[in-house]
Design a protein around this nucleic acid. Structure first.
Lengths: 192, 192
DNA sequence: GGTGTCATGTAAACAGTTACATGATTTT
DNA sequence: AAAATCATGTAACTGTTTACATGACACC
């Protein structure tokens, strides 16, 4: 059987973590380690930010000519590679931002549990709902706690800061929507 | 290097698609082919419903003793394996429904595009927003179109039907929330 | 003396998607 | 004549996570 592999040299359709990294680097040159922390802390960059993804993405961006790197040797610390976006990289970023958006995707395992909650008695159902509410509230607190941390990356760019605040408000409203739905659901099911 | 593999015989923590399949089978014995169609059409069972997942899951459920199957030979059609939940399977399902819920997960690639939309001029930004609105509206129409198809699986169980309607309303409200957020965003950015 | 930060990278496993393969029958 | 439905399964690949590995320094 003939193996059909894709062209690895000329990347056409990069996947989005590469673009997210390109975007972060466009604000400020950084190391993979810096990117890792930013992605892990970010609420809307939904990847885990593990090494494998980031160092692989940086290699791909480098091979595609979208970034360059400069090695900094430091004593008493491992040397670091500081990545900077090239003008080709900026073009690519702009091009990607203009691509037709995809619909949002939701993974709500809780809804699947709820689908078979007719197996439970009222107390158990109540506990299940309370558990979900708890989780959602925790996410909301986390979001509000790191309110600044996301858009402080965006220093000095007023337009950018406004956008990042709007992104933040999107996430907040999404979680709040779960809470109001939960209240309606309790009402509908006649639970106290 | 020593290979650390997990125990494949006694499954402890099955992943959720297995439980979803267990749940579907608890309503009615079915073939893998039937399950595939149900999952593909369902709005809240978020898997693609490809063969690989389903037939693998059915094998695992079978090995765990949560389902049994009966082979039906038919002429003028391939033979089918009809899977039925065992009482151990029902126990497992109930146990899983009671496990502490996880928070919902969102993948909104659009938000990442928006994060770097300061690279765009107003017309381009407008087009981007319109594209997202279009996608969300399409999802809403799809949802409303299949309004019945999801909970018709749940024949004859009043409690179950109510729950499935509530699940449906959760998804509707989630998409609607995106639309109201979009309106606020346009207002905030002073767009017509 | 153990744990955490800085900084890079690799290995192995798990999860998920697309596409392939078969073969009879029905529909367009 | 081509495409879709029924029905099972496999192969190959992509994507993602967890854990491993190194080594100096700082902190408790």
């Amino acid at each position: 059987m003939i193996q059909l592999t894709y062209d690895t040299e000329v990347e056409v359709g990069l996947i989005s973590i590469n673009h997210a990294i390109l975007g972060l680097l466009s604000h400020k040159p950084m190391t993979g380690y810096d990117l890792k922390k930013l992605i892990q802390e970010s609420s809307f960059l939904y990847w885990s930010g593990n090494n494998n993804q980031i160092y692989k993405a940086l290699l791909e961006l480098l091979n595609a000519g979208f970034v360059t790197n400069e090695v900094l040797h430091q004593d008493s610390s491992p040397s670091k590679k500081i990545y900077t976006v090239t003008s080709a990289g900026l073009d690519e970023l702009r091009k990607w931002v203009l691509t037709p958006p995809e619909p949002p995707e939701f993974k709500k395992t809780f809804l699947i549990q709820l689908a078979w909650a007719d197996l439970l008695n009222p107390d158990e159902l109540n506990a299940l709902l309370a558990g979900y509410e708890q989780e959602v509230r925790t996410q909301l607190l986390l979001l509000k706690g790191q309110a600044g941390s996301d858009h402080y990356v965006n220093e000095g760019n007023a337009k950018g800061i406004t956008l990042w605040k709007l992104i933040h408000s999107n996430l907040i409203s999404t979680y709040n929507n779960e809470l109001t739905w939960l209240a309606e659901l309790r009402h509908e099911l006649g639970l106290t």
